[in-house]
Design a protein around this nucleic acid. Structure first.
Length: 397
DNA sequence: CTTCCACAGGAAGGTCTGGCGG
DNA sequence: CCGCCAGACCTTCCTGTGGAAG
C-alpha cells in the first residue's frame, strides 16, 4: 500500500515537466562565465595579480564586502583565468582556495594541513606539533617551485592571528617560490583587531565590494534563471520580488538566488505549473525556518538547555530577560534533567553564541543602580519558534 | 557629585579526547 | 606502552563599567 503511493509519487514527479534544466546554476557553488556588475572589481584584482604571469610575486590583497557581494566568486573567477593563462604560457602558478569557516579551519595547524593536502602531502588531523607542520609546508613550497596564490576566504574566523604573521613573512624563508595571499573578509572591523604590522603586510592592496542594488540583483537573477530554469515558468514579478527582498538584506546575491531556487522547489513540489509570487513568500519563510531549525538542532546539550530557559522565560511574556534570570531558570532545568550546571561565566558565553547565531537578540544594557546585564529577546517567531520548541522538547526529554 | 549593583568579558589554566611517533 | 601535542570545553579569578539611586 505504502509502496504503491510511493510509486505514484515517483511517477507523478517524472511525468511532470521539470522546472529546472540546470539546478546548480542557482546554487552558490556555481561559477558563471560572466559576473555581471563586478567588472570593476575583476579588473582591479586581475591587475594586482597579473604580475604573477611574469614570474613576480603579486601584492597581497585584502578583500572586504558583506555576504553575497561576489567576493568569493570574483576571486575564484580571476584565479581560474589566471591559472589557464599561466598554463598556456608554461608559468608555474597555482591558486589554492580555502574557506576558513566552512571547514572549521580556524587554527594554524589546520590551515597548513589543508594547504598541504592540496599539494598531495597528507598530514594527520592532529598529533603533530604545529611548527612541524609549518616546516613541512615551507619544505613543500620549496620543492614545488613557482608562484602560489593562497586564497583565504572568511579569514576573520581564524582565531589564531599568529598564523597570518607567519604567512606574511613566509617569503623570507623561500628561495625559488613565492607566496601571495588573498584574504577575504566580510567583517570590516577585522583588521582593526590585528597587529598593525600584520595588517600592513597582508593588505598591500585593498578592494571593497559594495552591495548589489535591486536592479543589479535582477540582472544576476535573470542571467542565472536563463541557465537554470525552463522558459516561461516564471511569473513576471517573481525575479523583481526576489531581488527586492534580497536588496533589503544588504544586497545579498546569495539570498536572492536562494529565494528563487527554493521558490522553484516549492512550486515543483506542489505540482504548480508556474512560479508565482506566493511561492517566493513561502520560500522566504522556509529559508528562515530552516536556518533556525538547523541551528537549534546542532547546538550541544548545554546550549540547548540555555535556549530552552530563554524560551521558557519568554513564554511567561517576561519583557526584560537578563543573564541572571536565565541562569536561575537554567539551574532548575539542570536539576530536573540531572545535568551538572555550568558556571554563570560559561552560560554568559553560550548566550553570546546564541546571539551570534541569530536565534536570540542580546544587547548589553545598564539598569543603573540595578547593574549591567544583557537584555535578551527571542529572534524567532511563529513556525520557527514552534519547531524549535519541539526539537528542544525531544532532545532534552 | 559619589556609590554601587549585576553583570560583561579578559586571562590563565585545568581536564579530557583523539592522535602522533618512537 | 609512553610521553607529547592540538583543540574543545570549562572553571577560577579577575578587572571594568553605565547610569539610577542616594
Amino acid at each position: 500500500m505504502a509502496q504503491q503511493t510511493l510509486h505514484k509519487l515517483f511517477d507523478d514527479y517524472l511525468v511532470r515537466a521539470p522546472n529546472f534544466t540546470r539546478k546548480d546554476a542557482l546554487q552558490d557553488t556555481y561559477t558563471p562565465n560572466q559576473v555581471p556588475h563586478r567588472e570593476e572589481q575583476i579588473n582591479q584584482l586581475a591587475q594586482i595579480l597579473v604580475s604573477a604571469l611574469r614570474g613576480d610575486k603579486p601584492s597581497n590583497v585584502f578583500i572586504y564586502g558583506k555576504t553575497g557581494t561576489g567576493k568569493t566568486l570574483v576571486t575564484r573567477y580571476v584565479g581560474q583565468e589566471l591559472e589557464k593563462k599561466a598554463a598556456a604560457q608554461k608559468t608555474a602558478l597555482k591558486t589554492c582556495y580555502l574557506n576558513c569557516k566552512l571547514e572549521k579551519i580556524n587554527t594554524a595547524y589546520r590551515m597548513f594541513a589543508h594547504f598541504l593536502a592540496q599539494f598531495g602531502e597528507e598530514v594527520p588531523s592532529t598529533g603533530l606539533p604545529t611548527d612541524e607542520v609549518y616546516k613541512l609546508f615551507i619544505k613543500t613550497m620549496h620543492k614545488k617551485k613557482g608562484i602560489f596564490i593562497l586564497i583565504l576566504d572568511e579569514i576573520d574566523s581564524l582565531s589564531d592571528t599568529d598564523v597570518l604573521y607567519n604567512l606574511s613573512r613566509i617569503n623570507t624563508e623561500l628561495k625559488d617560490s613565492r607566496v601571495s595571499i588573498v584574504g577575504i573578509s566580510n567583517d570590516l572591523s577585522f583588521t582593526n583587531n590585528i597587529d598593525p604590522r600584520i595588517k600592513s603586510s597582508l593588505s598591500e592592496e585593498e578592494l571593497v565590494f559594495p552591495p548589489y542594488n535591486a536592479t543589479q540583483l535582477r540582472d544576476i537573477l535573470s542571467q542565472r534563471a536563463e541557465i537554470a530554469l525552463q522558459k516561461d515558468i516564471l511569473a513576471a514579478d517573481v525575479i523583481p520580488k526576489c531581488a527586492a527582498l534580497a536588496a533589503q538584506e544588504h544586497g545579498d546575491a546569495r539570498r536572492a538566488l536562494d529565494l528563487l531556487r527554493v521558490a522553484c522547489e516549492l512550486c515543483e513540489r506542489k505540482g504548480d505549473t508556474t512560479i508565482q509570487l506566493h511561492h517566493v513568500d513561502d520560500a522566504q519563510q522556509k529559508l528562515d525556518i530552516d536556518r533556525v531549525v538547523q541551528v537549534v538542532k546542532t547546538q550541544p546539550r548545554q546550549s540547548q538547555l540555555v535556549l530552552h530557559s530563554i524560551i521558557y522565560l519568554s513564554d511567561l511574556n517576561n519583557e526584560k530577560i537578563g543573564t541572571g534570570d536565565v541562569y536561575e531558570v537554567y539551574q532548575t532545568f539542570c536539576k530536573q534533567s540531572r545535568l551538572a550546571p555550568l558556571t554563570q561565566r560559561r552560560v554568559s558565553d553560550l548566550i553570546s553564541e546564541l546571539d551570534m547565531l541569530g536565534v536570540i537578540n542580546a544587547s548589553v544594557i545598564s539598569r543603573g543602580r540595578y547593574g549591567r546585564t544583557r537584555k535578551i529577546k527571542l529572534a524567532m517567531t511563529g513556525r520557527a519558534l514552534e519547531k524549535s520548541r519541539d526539537i528542544l522538547k525531544g532532545e532534552l526529554s
